[in-house]
Amino acid sequence: MASKKKPTLAVWKFASCDGCQLSLLDCEDELLAVADVVQIANFPEASRAVKRGPYDISLVEGSITTPHDAERIHKIRRMSKTLVVIGACATAGGIQALRNFTDVRRYVSAVYAHPEYIETLNKSTPIADHVFVDFELRGCPINKYHLIEVINAYLNGRKPNIPSYSVCMECKRKGNVCVMVATGVPCLGPVTQAGCGAICPSFNRGCYSCFGPKETPNTEALAGWLHALDQRPDEIVRAFRGFNAYAEPFRKQSEAYEK
C-alpha cells in the first residue's frame, strides 16, 4: 500500500447540520487507520490545508436548497471520480424538506426582516435529483462504521456491506423484544432501512426512521395498523414527516393521511 499513491478524499457540505461529516472525525479509534489509506485532501472542518481537485472520493453532505448550490454540486461531480452522498439531507432532502409540503415564501417573509435578500429554492432536494450519485449512505446521522465500510469497500474494490432491509432484522438479531407488539408503541422499524443498530427499540422506543424507507416499504399497511392502534391521522402524518419526509414512499404515505 505504501508504494502506491493514496486515493484523495474530499468532504463537501450543502444544507445540513454537519453531523454526518463529523462522523468521519468521530471515527477516533479508526481515524488514523483511515488517514493511513486515504489522503484527506479537502475537509475544511478538519483542516485548512486544502489540496486542489480532482478527487478520487467525494463525500457530500446536505441537500440542495439554493440556486447557488444547484450549480455547485455539478462542479463537485465533475471533479470527483466517485461521489458518495451521506445522510438523510443528501439522500432524501432532510428535515428541511418539510418546506416542500408548504409555500416557502411564507416562511421567508415571516422569519427574515429583509426577505428580498433571501434566495432560496421552493424545495429541498436530495443530491441524486441533480447529479449522478455512486452510493447513498443513509441516516440522520450516518453510522460511522458504515462510512468506514464504504471507504474500505472502495479501496479494496468490493461491494460495501450496507443492507437495505428493515431495522427489524438487526433489531431481532440483537435479541430485542418488538416494542410495537409488546407495548403498542408505534414503530417505523418495519419500513425503515437498517443501519443504526436499532437504537431506539433497544431502549423501548419506537423507530423514528432516521435511515429512511427500506427496500419495498409497505408504508400503507403499516399506517393502517398504526391507525388501528389508535394513532390519529395527524399523528401518522407526523410519524412519516421526520428526517426523511420527502423520500418518495414516506411523502406519499403522509399525504394520504393529510386529508
Partner: peptide, 21 residues
Amino acid sequence: TTALTGEQAFRIRRWDSCFTV
C-alpha cells in the same frame, strides 16, 4: 469483508430472511 489495508479478509455469517430482496 476486509481490513482497511486489504491485508486481511473475513467471512461472516448472519441470520438472513427470505423477505429481503
